[in-house]
Amino acid sequence: MSVKVLAIDDSRTMLGLVRKVMTDAGFDCVSAEDGEKGLEVFSREAPDVVITDINMPRMDGYGVINAIRGGKANRTVPILVLTTESADHLKARAREAGATGWIVKPFDDATIVALVRRVAGLGS
């Protein structure tokens, strides 16, 4: 089974990097450049894992998590938050919002792949 990852980030550079790492690891990767578009893609593509940035225009990452967790379909999909902040309160807030885990930017390719494999249930 191929894992489908949805990457949401307003930075094209980040999106490009995530896509590259994901596709190199053999995952399918779809993407969106803000929260609202992210939700559109989410409902259309039903990804196995979501990776989202936090601070984005229109709808931020918390909004994305809330919408997915509060939605009807696929609501327990693993959601990983991409953040440059490692402060504990930000992690707590992401967890509070319903994030499955987080990745601190700049990320290490192997770490993010291992994490996606783990939350997607592929084992390591």
Binding site: D10, S11, T13, M14, L17, N55, M56, P57, T84, K105, P106, F107
Partner: peptide, 19 residues
């Protein structure tokens, strides 16, 4: 929102630069 967008610009540059 303008201030936030300003913040985001620098933040995104930092994120990419780090990578």
């Amino acid at each position: 929102e303008t201030v936030n967008a300003v913040f985001r610009s620098v933040h995104s540059i930092k994120g990419g630069a780090g990578a």
